[in-house]
Computed example of a mutant assay.
Amino acid sequence: MSISSLLVCDDSNMARKQLIRALPEDWPVAVVQAANGREGLDAIRRGDVGLVLLDLTMPEMDGYEVLAAIRAEALDTQVIVVSGDVQDEAIKRVAELGALAFLKKPVEPGLLRHTLLEHGLLGVPSAETGARIEADEPNVQFRDAFREVVNVAMGQAAALLARQLDVFVRLPIPNVNILEVGELHMALAHAQQGDQLSAVCQGYIGSGIAGEALLIFHDSEVRDMAKLMRWKPANREGELEMLLDLASILIGACLSGIAEQLDVSFSQGHPVVLGQHSSIDELIRVNQRRWKKTLAVELSYSLEGHDIHFDLLLLFTEDSVARLSLKTAYLMS
């Protein structure tokens, strides 16, 4: 099958740039881009898109919805999913929706070439045609680059949690912002919604980067989470132990994913209970001297089939931004 036009559909400029650079240089194909699933589906409907490299976690319309629409409308295109969501269930679902293959982010050029060859999509090499790949690389700023790093790490953490709890984790689009304390308060306040909260905090430092991870639970959902984790907390101390265990899984996996991509190493402190049965106002008031201005990454997880939500925040110190910018620049170069 000869492909003349390829669609790269991903909301991250960084991810699209990485993917375009991973394409075989001797592949005579024109590349078009879409920043969300709705834009991507519109491009497919216009025709002449022989192959889509599709992300899953996107605004407007996610990758699952795009795959479902392609099948429902019998659109003439092939799809390879390229995603940071590496849960076994995610891989299974995209296959059932008709995707040819699943590749994890960031994709290895050799594996991408092998996958294209395996499905007969690579076409005639440029040595015979004289043509080369046609693609404009998107401009990437620090926030977008770091958001993509977090996106991949978040997917790895979710896959670990999904295996341990036998659930499907709905992944958010990470929010990455540099915030003052007042702005951080506003960013967290929506998570409370009148409920009381329990929070676990864990510090980390390494390679000129430091910060704190904050995992926030709604008290109304702690009991349901305990059931999933097969804990039977008899008292408050038992609840705390369960929350510390969950925090260790999620925070450790997420930080490990970031460290691996940026080629850094983090030392993690012991997780501690920051507050239990407290309001956001109390949590911020107690810690505002430490947090001040921060690079804040917000991830709001939910578990499919369960009324369970929790927020993971990575709060990097202001001094860490320069080091993180330097590290992500290597990924962009």
Results as ranks from 00 to 15, higher is better:
residue 1 M to R: 11
residue 5 S to F: 06
residue 6 L to R: 01
residue 12 S to K: 03
residue 14 M to P: 00
residue 15 A to S: 15
residue 15 A to F: 13
residue 21 R to V: 07
residue 25 E to D: 14
residue 28 P to G: 07
residue 33 Q to N: 10
residue 36 N to W: 04
residue 37 G to Y: 03
residue 37 G to K: 01
residue 38 R to C: 11
residue 40 G to P: 00
residue 46 R to D: 10
residue 49 V to K: 08
residue 52 V to I: 05
residue 53 L to W: 05
residue 61 M to N: 07
residue 63 G to D: 11
residue 67 L to F: 06
residue 72 A to I: 03
residue 73 E to Q: 14
residue 73 E to A: 11
residue 74 A to T: 07
residue 76 D to A: 13
residue 76 D to Y: 03
residue 77 T to Q: 12
residue 78 Q to T: 05
residue 80 I to H: 04
residue 80 I to C: 02
residue 81 V to C: 03
residue 83 S to P: 01
residue 84 G to E: 01
residue 85 D to S: 08
residue 86 V to I: 13
residue 87 Q to W: 02
residue 88 D to Q: 14
residue 89 E to W: 07
residue 91 I to G: 05
residue 92 K to E: 15
residue 95 A to R: 11
residue 97 L to T: 03
residue 100 L to M: 05
residue 103 L to W: 07
residue 104 K to D: 13
residue 105 K to I: 02
residue 105 K to T: 01
residue 110 G to S: 11
residue 111 L to N: 07
residue 116 L to G: 05
residue 120 G to C: 04
residue 122 L to P: 04
residue 124 V to E: 15
residue 124 V to A: 15
residue 127 A to P: 08
residue 129 T to G: 04
residue 130 G to M: 03
residue 134 E to G: 10
residue 137 E to A: 09
residue 139 N to P: 06
residue 145 A to N: 01
residue 145 A to I: 01
residue 149 V to I: 10
residue 151 N to I: 03
residue 155 G to R: 04
residue 155 G to E: 06
residue 156 Q to L: 08
residue 161 L to K: 00
residue 164 Q to I: 00
residue 164 Q to M: 07
residue 166 D to W: 12
residue 167 V to L: 06
residue 170 R to N: 15
residue 171 L to C: 03
residue 171 L to Y: 03
residue 174 P to N: 03
residue 177 N to A: 15
residue 181 V to C: 10
residue 193 Q to H: 12
residue 194 G to M: 05
residue 195 D to V: 04
residue 196 Q to C: 08
residue 199 A to F: 05
residue 202 Q to L: 01
residue 202 Q to M: 13
residue 203 G to S: 15
residue 207 S to G: 06
residue 209 I to A: 10
residue 212 E to Y: 07
residue 214 L to V: 06
residue 215 L to T: 02
residue 215 L to D: 00
residue 218 H to C: 07
residue 220 S to E: 14
residue 223 R to P: 12
residue 223 R to F: 12
residue 224 D to Q: 13
residue 225 M to A: 02
residue 226 A to D: 05
residue 230 R to M: 15
residue 232 K to V: 14
residue 233 P to V: 03
residue 234 A to P: 02
residue 236 R to T: 13
residue 241 E to I: 06
residue 245 D to M: 12
residue 245 D to E: 15
residue 251 I to V: 14
residue 253 A to P: 00
residue 254 C to P: 01
residue 256 S to N: 15
residue 257 G to A: 03
residue 260 E to M: 09
residue 263 D to Y: 13
residue 264 V to K: 04
residue 266 F to Y: 04
residue 267 S to A: 15
residue 269 G to M: 11
residue 272 V to K: 13
residue 279 S to A: 15
residue 280 I to E: 06
residue 285 R to P: 01
residue 285 R to N: 12
residue 285 R to I: 07
residue 288 Q to I: 04
residue 288 Q to S: 14
residue 288 Q to K: 10
residue 289 R to M: 08
residue 293 K to S: 15
residue 297 V to M: 11
residue 298 E to M: 14
residue 298 E to I: 10
residue 304 E to W: 09
residue 309 H to D: 13
residue 312 L to F: 08
residue 312 L to G: 05
residue 312 L to H: 05
residue 312 L to Q: 10
residue 313 L to S: 13
residue 314 L to A: 00
residue 315 L to A: 03
residue 315 L to Q: 01
residue 320 S to A: 14
residue 322 A to L: 11
residue 323 R to D: 14
residue 327 K to S: 11
residue 327 K to F: 09
residue 328 T to V: 15
residue 328 T to N: 02
residue 330 Y to V: 10
residue 330 Y to A: 12
